[in-house]
């Protein structure tokens, strides 16, 4: 795919966005009242549902840790989530690596020492995949954990950015992801500390820092939207206070 198909002469992408424009980001929390915590995220056409259960007794006793909780992450990608309909199994190596990455990220963020010998289960359902799936999973997990009332050190906000020749692009869709060098960056909302970074393709070192900064700027926008979603969910409770 040529450079001009990704970014036109007018500086527009194939979905009409400018280089520094994000897709429509919407999030709702507490959508599953029967669960401890739940969140639904839409980033353009990417849709992710996250359900958090716990802290509860570990299903596999050997995974219980005496001093802290164990975070179990499961990602289920729907067979209809992409254009090519194919069943993805949990044994898929790529899915397992994504689960492990999420597990390691959130074990650092959750105050695991408060719940020894227990398990926090995170179930992610990717209903539609149009790029930035990992970023959406991280954002959805953060909101679901907050909804569940599990103590976390900060919001974890994630965004993607890529580079085509010397032009940088923010928040890539699946078409752009398949053609460009891109990275996923997750930062803590308040202190802007990078907690997760994923770069699967090769990228010139000269561009790495600027692409990273762009992804961090995108995460800041996501942080503000996530905050307002949490605030929105709290309004009924606050309205009853006199």
């Amino acid at each position: 795919m040529s450079h001009f198909e990704i970014l036109s002469l007018e500086g527009l992408r194939n979905d009409g966005r400018r280089w520094d424009e994000m897709r429509n980001f919407q999030c709702r929390i507490g959508i599953e009242p029967s669960e401890n915590g739940s969140a639904f995220i839409e980033l353009g056409n990417t849709k992710v549902l996250c359900i958090v259960d716990g802290p509860s007794e570990p299903v596999i006793k050997s995974k219980a840790r005496a001093d802290r909780t164990f975070v179990n992450v499961e990602i289920n990608i729907a067979s209809f989530s992409t254009i090519d309909v194919k069943k993805r199994f949990k044994s898929d190596r790529r899915i397992q690596l994504q689960c492990l990455a999420l597990q390691n990220t959130f074990e650092e963020i959750i105050q695991t020492e408060l719940y020894p010998r227990s398990q926090i289960s995170v179930y992610l359902h990717v209903l539609q995949d149009d790029g930035a799936v990992m970023a959406s999973c991280i954002n959805a997990t953060t909101l679901a954990l907050i909804d569940a009332g599990i103590p976390v050190k900060d919001f974890v906000c994630c965004s993607t950015a890529g580079i085509v020749e010397s032009d940088m692009l923010l928040d890539l869709n699946s078409l752009e992801e398949s053609a460009l060098s891109w990275l996923t960056v997750a930062v803590l909302g308040n202190i802007k500390k990078v907690v997760y970074m994923q770069l699967e393709t090769s990228m010139h070192l000269d561009y790495l820092e600027s692409v990273m900064n762009m992804a961090i700027a995108g995460s800041e926008h996501i942080y503000n939207t996530m905050q307002s979603a949490v605030r929105q969910s709290a309004k009924p409770a606050l309205a009853s206070l006199s």
């Binding site: 907050i146 103590p151 976390v152 050190k153 900060d154 919001f155 803590l188 909302g189 308040n190 202190i191 905050q227 949490v230 605030r231 709290a234 309004k235 606050l238 309205a239 206070l241 006199s242």
Partner: peptide
């Protein structure tokens, strides 16, 4: 009431 309440509403990391 909402605005008054939101002043004392805090988010993780704050």
């Amino acid at each position: 009431v909402e605005e008054k309440g939101l002043l004392s509403y805090y988010f993780p990391g704050e």
